[in-house]
Nucleic acid binder design. Structure first.
Length: 644
DNA sequence: GGCTCCTTAC
C-alpha cells in the first residue's frame, strides 16, 4: 500500500470520530489510534496466500464500499490469523462507511476480539448488539471462559437465562468449562439437570465437557457414569475420561481404559497420548511408554510440545534419562514446561550438576523465562545432588529479585531441605523461624527427617511436637519421631508418641510396590497374600534373605513401628512390599536384565540396604523409584549416596 | 457464526 493510500485511510478514519454514535467513544478513539496501516511487508496479510483477501483488505483500507460477504471473509481471516490490527481496521471501516452490521457479523467481531485476547473490546461489541442471539451469548461466554474468567462466564450464563434466550449444546459445552473447584461442582450439577431437562445429555461435546467437570472436581465415578451413558464416543470424550483417571492418580484405571478403548478401535490424538503418558509415568510402566512412543513415531504426529514434554517426563520417570535428553535436544520449540520437565528429571535422579547445566543453557538461550517450578526443580536438584552452596546461591539470587521469580513457601521449603540434608540442622532451624511464611507440615517434616538422619534429638523433638500439631493424622511423622527418640534411648518419650499414635487411630497410607512384566503390572502389598504366586515369592524372599545375611546384611529393626519382639520384627521386615516385588522380578526376568521396582511411599532404610546387597549378589542393576526420587543401584552402590 | 480432552512442581 502506498503512502497516498495510507494518508487517505488515516483521514477517513479520523472522520469517523464524530459521525457514529452506535459504537462507544472509547472504542472509536481506540480504533482511530490504530489508523496507520502497518508496513505492508510486516502485515500478516502480506504473507497470506489469498489474493482475494489481500485485495479486499486493501479496498477496505482505501475506503471502498464493502458488503456483508466482504466483511465476513475478512473477519474470518482476521480470526484465523489473529490479525488484531487488521480486524480493528475492518471494524473501523464499518464505522466510517456507516455500515450497520447484522448480528452475524457482530458475533464474528466478538469471536475475533476474544481470540485476540481483547475481552473488553469483545464485551463492548456484545453490549451494543440490539438483538443478541444464542451465538452472541455463547461466543462471549466462551471468550471469558477461555481467558480464565470463570465467574464472569457464569454470571453471563445466568443473565442469558434471565433474558429468555435458551442455551443449546454449544452453550452448555462451553459454560461447563467454567465450573471448577468446589463451588463449580454445585453449579455444574445445576447445569447438568438443566441439560437433562433440555435433552442435550446425549450430545458428545456436552458429555465430554460434563464428564471432564466431574473428573476435575474429583467425582470420577460420576464422570464414568456420564461417559458410559454416551450414545457415541469420540477421541475427546475418551481422552477426557482417561485424563480424568490419570489426574486423580488412578493410573492403573487410566492405562487399562486406554488399552481397552484402543482395542475397541479408538484413534488417539496427541492429547490422548499426553494424557495416558501421565498415567504411564505414574506407574513407571516402561514397556507401555515405549509402545506409546513408537505409536507416535509411526503415525508421524506433528511434534507438539505438549506431547514431547510428556514423553520426556515418561522416560525420566521410567528411569531412562538418556532418552529424555535425546527428545529434549531434538525439540525445535521448547516451552517452560519442557525445561522444567528435564530439570525435574535430573533432580529426581540426583544429578545436580546436569540440572545446573540445563538451567544455564536455558539462561543462555534466553528464549523462555524460568518460572516458579523451574526454581523449585533447580533448588531441589541442588539439594538431592549434594550441591548445597550452589543451591543457596540460586536462592539468594531469587531473594534479591534477580531472577524475576519471587520465592514462595515452596522455595523456602527446598532450602530447609537443602540445609537439613547437608547436616546444618541449626542453620535450617533458624531459617524456618526467620522465614516470612508460617512453616507447613511439609517443611517441619523435612526438617524432622534431617534431624533423624543427623541424630539431632533436641531440635528433632521440638520440630516433631510442632509437626504433630499441624498434621496429627500423618502416621509417618509419629514413626520418624519415635525412631529418633528410640535411637537416643528416650524410651518414656517413645512410649508417649506411640500411645498418641494409637489413640488417634492413625492409618498409614498402605505401602505398595509394583513391577511391569510383559506390559502387565504386578502389585504387591506388605505381607501380600493375594498374589497368585505368593508361595514362590515368599520362598524366594527367604532364599534372598539367607544370601544377603551371608554377605553382611543386618536387618534394621528400627524400621518396624510395631511393638513386637525382635524375631517378629525381622519377619515383618521381610514382608515389605518392595522386597516381594524384588523377589518376583528376580524370579521372572532373565539374568543380568535390569530390574525396575516402583514404590508408592518413600523406601525404608532396611529395604534400601537389602536392595543394595541384592544388586551385588545377584548381579542385577536395580532401578528403584520411590515417592520422592530414583535410586539407581549398581553393584551395591546407590546413586542417592544413602541419603534421600 | 459460537462447543468438549492437554505436559512440569508440591
Amino acid at each position: 500500500m502506498n503512502l497516498k493510500n495510507i494518508q487517505k485511510c488515516t483521514s477517513l478514519l479520523n472522520h469517523s470520530l464524530h459521525i457514529f454514535s452506535s459504537t462507544s467513544n472509547t472504542m472509536i478513539r481506540k480504533l482511530t489510534s490504530y489508523s496507520l496501516p502497518p508496513n505492508s511487508t510486516n502485515s500478516k496479510f502480506a504473507i497470506s496466500n489469498s489474493n482475494l483477501k489481500q485485495a479486499l483488505l486493501e479496498m477496505a483500507f482505501q475506503g471502498t464500499e464493502m458488503k456483508f460477504e466482504g466483511y465476513d471473509l475478512l473477519l474470518n481471516e482476521c480470526v484465523s490469523q489473529k490479525g488484531l490490527i487488521e480486524g480493528q481496521r475492518v471494524q473501523a471501516h464499518m464505522i466510517k462507511t456507516q455500515y450497520l452490521p447484522p448480528v452475524y457479523l457482530r458475533n464474528r467481531l466478538i469471536v475475533f476480539y476474544t481470540k485476540c485476547e481483547c475481552l473488553e473490546d469483545a464485551r463492548m461489541v456484545f453490549d451494543e448488539i440490539p438483538e443478541r442471539n444464542v451465538v452472541s451469548w455463547t461466543a462471549m461466554i466462551s471468550g471469558y471462559s477461555r481467558r480464565g474468567y470463570a465467574s464472569e462466564a457464569l454470571v453471563l450464563f445466568v443473565e442469558m437465562l434471565k433474558s429468555g434466550i435458551e442455551p443449546n449444546e454449544f452453550t452448555f459445552a462451553t459454560v461447563l468449562t467454567s465450573c471448577s473447584g468446589v463451588s463449580g461442582l454445585l453449579h455444574g450439577r445445576q447445569i447438568h439437570s438443566h441439560i437433562i431437562k433440555l435433552s442435550f445429555d446425549a450430545h458428545v461435546y456436552v458429555g465430554s465437557s460434563l464428564l471432564d467437570l466431574y473428573a476435575k472436581t474429583g467425582w470420577i465415578h460420576e464422570a464414568r457414569v456420564v461417559f458410559d451413558g454416551l450414545p457415541e464416543r469420540d477421541v475427546v470424550s475418551c481422552t477426557a475420561i482417561i485424563s480424568g483417571y490419570a489426574q486423580l492418580g488412578f493410573d492403573e484405571e487410566a492405562l487399562k481404559l486406554f488399552c481397552q478403548l484402543q482395542e475397541e478401535g479408538m484413534i488417539s490424538n496427541y492429547v490422548t497420548y499426553a494424557s495416558v503418558l501421565t498415567a504411564i509415568s505414574g506407574l513407571a510402566a516402561y514397556e507401555h511408554g515405549r509402545q506409546v512412543h513408537s505409536h507416535v513415531l509411526r503415525f508421524q504426529l506433528p511434534s507438539y510440545a505438549v506431547l514431547q514434554n510428556s514423553l520426556i517426563d515418561m522416560y525420566s520417570k521410567c528411569g531412562n534419562l538418556t532418552y529424555s535428553r535425546r527428545i529434549f535436544d531434538n525439540m525445535s520449540e521448547r516451552t517452560v514446561i519442557t525445561w522444567n520437565t528435564m530439570l525435574v528429571g535430573y533432580s529426581k535422579h540426583g544429578r545436580g550438576q546436569d540440572a545446573v547445566k540445563v538451567f544455564e543453557l536455558m539462561r543462555e538461550e534466553n528464549k523462555v523465562l524460568p518460572d516458579k517450578v523451574t526454581f523449585l526443580a533447580l533448588l531441589s536438584a541442588c539439594s538431592h545432588g549434594g550441591m548445597e552452596n550452589r543451591g543457596l546461591e540460586f536462592f539468594d539470587e531469587m531473594v534479591r529479585g534477580k531472577t524475576g521469580v519471587e520465592p514462595d513457601i515452596g522455595h523456602y521449603g527446598t532450602v530447609v531441605d537443602l540445609l537439613g540434608r547437608a547436616g546444618q540442622i541449626e542453620k535450617a532451624f533458624k531459617f524456618v523461624k526467620d522465614m516470612p511464611f508460617e512453616p507447613t507440615g511439609a517443611i517441619w517434616g523435612s526438617l524432622l527427617g534431617a534431624c533423624s538422619v543427623h541424630q539431632n534429638v533436641d531440635i528433632g523433638q521440638y520440630v516433631g511436637s510442632q509437626l504433630l500439631i499441624i498434621e496429627p493424622e500423618n502416621a509417618g511423622n509419629y514413626v520418624v519421631l519415635s525412631n529418633l527418640l528410640a535411637s537416643a534411648g528416650r524410651w518414656n518419650e517413645v512410649r508417649v508418641v506411640r500411645d498418641m499414635m494409637m489413640e488417634k487411630a492413625i492409618t498409614k497410607e498402605p505401602g505398595k510396590s509394583w513391577i511391569e512384566l510383559d506390559k502387565t503390572i504386578h502389585t504387591f502389598h506388605a505381607d501380600d497374600r493375594s498374589h497368585p504366586q505368593k508361595e514362590e515369592v515368599a520362598e524366594k524372599v527367604r532364599e534372598m534373605s539367607v544370601k544377603v545375611r551371608e554377605a553382611g546384611y543386618v536387618p534394621n529393626l528400627s524400621c518396624v513401628l510395631y511393638d513386637v519382639d525382635e524375631e517378629q520384627k525381622g519377619k515383618m521386615l521381610l514382608g515389605h512390599s518392595e522386597k516381594l516385588a524384588l523377589a518376583f522380578a528376580l524370579m521372572c526376568t532373565p539374568q543380568k536384565r535390569p530390574i525396575r521396582v516402583m514404590k508408592n511411599l518413600r523406601i525404608c532404610v532396611d529395604c534400601h540396604n537389602f536392595a543394595k546387597f541384592v544388586s551385588k549378589i545377584y548381579e542385577r542393576e536395580i532401578y528403584l523409584r520411590d515417592k520422592s526420587r530414583y535410586h539407581h543401584i549398581v553393584d551395591g552402590v546407590c546413586s542417592c549416596g544413602n541419603y534421600w
